[in-house]
Design a protein around this nucleic acid. Structure first.
Length: 298
DNA sequence: ACCCAGGCGGGCG
DNA sequence: CGCCCGCATGGG
């Protein structure tokens, strides 16, 4: 194997690394982002990938630096969904003023496609929690259990995301030490379940109903977390996870602040936006709403 | 001090 | 079913 570092670049339009990174998706809970150079560093298998975004969000380019550059390039393209036709996405969901504003403000924000196991673990941590702490707990688990990644000379450069096998020896108490709190039991059960009973990488991403049913058989995975995993771990855009922010934002933007039930919201969104891109609609609602509330008077 | 955070499982009516 | 409650932990 060639251990030398090399680089390549790709043209990409309607992509923003900054908005994608900042919008709280699984990758962003363990990758390192440098906002000044606009570059991201993250582990991929036994490699470390460094990726920078240059030029405008409409017409820019990403530069990738890594060992095994060809697999790194396809990893970047896949993880950041660079093949998505964002023009079509924006056309399909940009049908009202609120969404148009969110698209304008966060233009180029992509969904990311992540490993199903990693996504499941991260979103179990996410429940009844806040973004900052989700990041912290995830990083603690990586620091404690993640396999070391070596450079060409055998020097450790960073830790990868631990697989279920890496967590076999981990106890509930270990997860508590990572800050997981009451979710520690869920994580322990997840590691056991995924080692003995189920291979998340073998589930069919296309069959939404079946996939959801299977995921919800995991202790600690309910309706919302399952939808997050389907969207960001399996890349199925039919999923529209409804969390407190999404619910609140939709009620405010489309129902004059009136409280609605989950089912009413689900019915509403599936007739409002192009169903092929529902997942994207959710991401823009989520981030648009959350950022708007952040900018309000405090 | 009090409130909230990308909810879920369990229990009750 | 639908609804309600408790849940670890840390930051505003």
């Amino acid at each position: 194997m060639d251990d030398s570092i090399s680089s390549t670049s790709l043209k990409v339009s309607l992509f923003s690394l900054r908005h994608t990174f900042e919008s709280a998706q699984p990758l962003t809970f363990h990758a390192d982002y440098d906002q000044f150079s606009n570059t991201i560093t993250y582990p991929s298998g036994r490699n470390v990938i460094n990726m920078g975004h240059y030029g405008s969000e409409k017409d820019g380019e990403v530069r990738i630096v890594s060992r095994d550059i060809s697999s790194a390039a396809s990893d970047v393209s896949r993880r950041f969904r660079l093949g998505d036709d964002m023009k079509a996405v924006y056309k399909g969901i940009g049908t009202d003023q609120f969404m148009k504003d969110a698209i304008t403000r966060y233009s180029g924000m992509r969904l990311t496609l992540n490993d199903p196991w990693e996504t499941t673990l991260v979103f179990i941590i996410s429940q009844f929690n806040n973004v900052k702490r989700i990041r912290l707990i995830t990083k603690n688990i990586i620091a404690r259990f993640g396999p070391e990644i070596m450079d060409g000379s055998g020097k450790s450069i960073m830790r990868g995301f631990p697989g279920s096998a890496d967590l076999i020896g981990a106890s509930e108490k270990d997860f508590r030490k990572c800050g997981a709190g009451f979710r520690a039991k869920y994580l322990k059960d997840l590691a056991d379940y995924c080692t003995n009973n189920i291979d998340l990488n073998r589930l069919n991403p296309k069959n939404y109903d079946k996939l959801k049913e299977t995921l919800m058989s995991i202790n600690g995975v309910g309706e919302k977390v399952a939808d997050c995993i389907i969207l960001m771990g399996y890349g199925n855009l039919a999923a529209f996870p409804i969390d407190v922010w999404v619910k609140r934002t939709i009620e405010k933007a489309y129902f004059n602040g009136k409280r609605k039930r989950m089912k009413e919201i689900m019915d509403f969104v599936s007739q409002k936006w192009d169903r092929r891109y529902l997942g994207y609609a959710q991401q823009y609602i989520f981030w648009g709403g959350r950022q708007a509330s952040r900018n309000e008077v405090k």
